[in-house]
Design a protein around this nucleic acid. Structure first.
Lengths: 231, 231
DNA sequence: CTTCGCAATATCCTATAGGATCTGGAGCCG
DNA sequence: CGGCTCCAGATCCTATAGGATATTGCGAAG
């Protein structure tokens, strides 16, 4: 289901969401980008996509227009679209510096504001991910990445600042991070760190929640940063 | 000229930007929204736009898809698009709370990093706005709003964190603020506050720059907040 | 063997057509 | 007079066509 992108007004249509073809294509292409089925920097050819997906150009053009505004593809007028590149080292550093500004504060605010139902949602999210030992490494990582994204989005939601949540969502942080690294093996530490954040939020201790989130993001950065040293 | 929305990769095409019709339509509709020619919440009718602009549906659909991802319009599938509403009081508060997180820090970083050329750019931006006494109030406000947006974007650029700059740009902060209030008469104070920020950046004093930016944003919030008390 | 030019083909962009869906107004009934 | 139902027209979405532009490959010349 496409997430309803809404403006700052936050007004969702009261109608149940109707899915049109361009929404499906949007999710499909976004998934191809996320999974690096389409390599960073490669061309997205509209005619080729019409053949592969068996649909006409119009929903493809519309979905590419949205992906362009999302920053996931780059339009080269009269030449086609290109998938945005993987994060460079500088962009990675910028992203985490930005996260360190927004997310510890958000965790602190969540600790201040969270009610019983909010805490139940956090608990449910923590329980939604269980590592299955036999699962292929890629699948495991994909599931963990999806959980990670939901978890961080939820903390931002519980902070009560919709601008911050939307701004973070629009960085497509987890999509970019997911494209950097495919391996498994980091879920255990990340989950432990998530748990520490939730414990602090449950206690209603803003400073502890902020510190836990800061520690988690710094650790996450440390886990991923060596990717750039390999090049 | 459409601003080139690029992903975190920051890779602009090396080609000179070619303007296609959908880019023109994007800027046109965005301008209509900014100027409240199209009132918040009203429907954008694709067939009507084809008649008014004298072009076909395709570039209109594409531009609306981009505006949807930008959060400036809301798609109601099979029913049309609606202009996102004006900021509510809560969204206004969220936006300024978010700004207070990002922009003082950015000003401090700009103070740390700004070289001679950067300082020249700041000075040029300050000089780019001159209030003309006879100018109609609306035009004066529009010019001030444009300067305000460029100024804040420049400070964020000089902070060196492209993620923060993009995230802030994607809130379309100034477009939303512009829609709230049309009157004139606030330029003098805002310009004075800008000048204080620039002075601190020029001195290379991060704390002073951060404090000046914080004071400016708080003052700006104080100037605009009473709009919600009138309702 | 390499480079340049040209042409054919691929691709992009926009116009147009038509079926599906929604909306608003008119008419009828209570 | 008000409310409900139905239908005509408006609107949306996608398919398709065609002109404009870019790309790639082949052939010829140096």
């Amino acid at each position: 289901m496409t997430d309803a992108h809404v403006g700052l007004a936050g007004q969702l249509s009261r109608l149940p969401q109707r899915q049109v073809l361009s929404d499906d294509v949007y999710e499909t292409v976004k998934g191809l980008i996320m999974d690096s089925v389409v390599q960073p920097g490669t061309r997205l050819n509209i005619d080729a996509l019409t053949r592969e997906l068996g649909i006409s150009q119009t929903p493809i053009r519309e979905s590419l227009a949205r992906l362009e505004s999302d920053g996931l593809v780059i339009k080269e007028p009269l030449r086609g679209y290109r998938v945005s590149s993987r994060l460079t080292r500088d962009e990675f550093d910028d992203l985490f510096e930005y996260r360190l500004h927004i997310e510890p504060w958000a965790a602190g605010r969540a600790a201040q504001r969270a009610g019983t139902e909010d805490l139940a949602r956090l608990k449910a999210e923590m329980l939604s991910y269980t590592d299955v030992p036999d699962r292929p490494a890629y699948e495991s990582y994909r599931a963990m990445a999806a959980h990670d994204q939901r978890f961080h989005d939820l903390v931002l939601e519980l902070s009560g600042n919709e601008t911050a949540r939307l701004s973070f969502a629009r960085t497509h942080c987890h999509l970019h991070l997911f494209r950097l690294y495919y391996g498994g093996g980091i879920a255990t530490k990340a989950l432990r760190e998530h748990k520490t954040v939730v414990t602090a939020v449950r206690k209603g201790d803003p400073e502890e929640a902020a510190a836990a989130m800061r520690a988690h993001i710094e650790a996450s950065r440390a886990r991923l940063r060596p990717i750039f040293d390999q090049e």
